[in-house]
Design a protein around this nucleic acid. Sequence first.
RNA 1: GGCCCCAUCGUCUAGUGGACUAGGACUCAGCCCUUUCAAGGCUGCGACAGGGGUUCGAAUCCCCUUGGGGCUACCA
Length: 505
Amino acid sequence: MTMATISTLPARVRFAPSPTGFLHLGGLRTALFDWLYARHTGGQFILRIEDTDQKRFNPESLDDLMRSLRWLGLEWDEGPDIGGPHAPYIQSERRAIYRQYADWLVEHGKAYRCYTTEAELEELRAAGKPYDRRHRNLTPEQRAAFEAEGRPYVIRFAAPLTGSTTVHDAIRGPITVENSSVVDPVLLKSDGLPTYHLAVVVDDHLMEITHVLRGEEWIPSAPLHVMIFDAFGWSAPVFVHLPVILDPSGKGKMSKRKTVVDGREFSPFVRDYISGGYLPDAMFNFLANMGWSYDAEQEIFTREEAISRFDVADISPKATALPFGKLEWMNGVYIRRMAPTQFAEAVAPYIAADLGMSVESLRHDRRLIELAPLIQERIKVLTEATPLVDWAFAPAEQITYPDPTLLIGKKLTAVESIDVLKASAEIVADIEPFEVSALEAAFRSRAEAMQVKLGSFLAPVRVAITGKPVSPPLFESMHVLGRAETLIRIGNAIQALRLHAMQTA
RNA sequence: GGCCCCAUCGUCUAGUGGACUAGGACUCAGCCCUUUCAAGGCUGCGACAGGGGUUCGAAUCCCCUUGGGGCUACCA
């Protein structure tokens, strides 16, 4: 590696999802940018779980999240499972910390206990009004009365009533809002857990986070976070609000359900791409192009190249719709670039699952080893492999010809096609050695002798041995099957075509 | 409604005042190659939302309009 001119200090960047469901592509993109920036600066990538909403907690999601991140190759330096200098990294295990900091704010007049009931708040909402700061300036007597009553309370932030606050966003520049628009948000809920606002500020400070990359839906509350940092007397990290990912069909945020593009369904969840035959390298490359670009003329690049050039300042502020068609294309590019043996290893599980075979036996199966390189440039996702090779794993009886007309070559009659199949059988029976090049030479000269174009000559044979009009290269396919099996299938096809000719005559 | 963000081909993007007759990629169409399907090669279609400024000069800077998006919870 050459010495890059890195003027940036090592950054501490965290990915802080809340475990409420399966990780989606937007979250993965955020994690990727976090990781990229941490690696670019030689800093740390930290995973922190923001589970302060016990109602929305989904126990499956933590595992899904870590699996997804690791699948993409985003290893974290500190996190819930591996610990670190600022453990724990799960917010529900840090509640005492938040309580302590919330109390500190109350003691210093920067926050206050609010006893407003759910019903009172509902009244305000119904009238279309925000919270009216009614308990901001309670007298000691009023407060004592509420306490004596045993009323539950929340702790609200006493936001400045005048002036304005400016947030410096690394990709958008300064964003200023009037302080009066921030109406004393809740910092600590009545269940004793903090809201996002308190937890994020306390943890980002305690964990020495230098750069906060998060979705742009956080822009409106960013000024509040700056105010809270100020109230504690802490300096705020650099804020980088990533553009949202739009739904490709229609508009708005990408939906939580499947979305249909060009008649095909695409899921927003990472897990579906893991099981759907996508390669982590391709997904990595694809996502890296969403809102950031490596180079004006080059969009296929390695992880190392991305790390060397990635900078938060170069991220685009524009919301983007994921071009799923491009994801498929890129996955195909990565599939084609794999070493043949590596590709065979990668497709084996998918084919084995579809065919009900054991992955281990398939991995060492001569048929797969021979077929894999032939289908490598023909599929865009690993799940497309099976229909291209299943015929090789089925016995001849299972290769039926429900539509016998497929056995008729272009510009040929049924009878002529039968002649072609008979000639083919002769070649297959006699050829020595039974190898691809010998087969090809023999078929070519026989086609020429019979004055049939090679394409037309081969079509009936292709359908005869694979049962399909589309297949991997024919001579190789015959070789995979072997002489005997090939002859049986051609024989069966001749029978089927004869029957068809008789019925239509 | 209020506050905030955004605006280049259908989509992802390059572009930070002159190198722009606006470049690349996906998709689509055509041609070539070819044993089917792919892959590959070549060509083509296709954009600076509109209007005002600033400037010798604007896709690039400012303003307005329009359009899109986000937030507006004791959710994150």
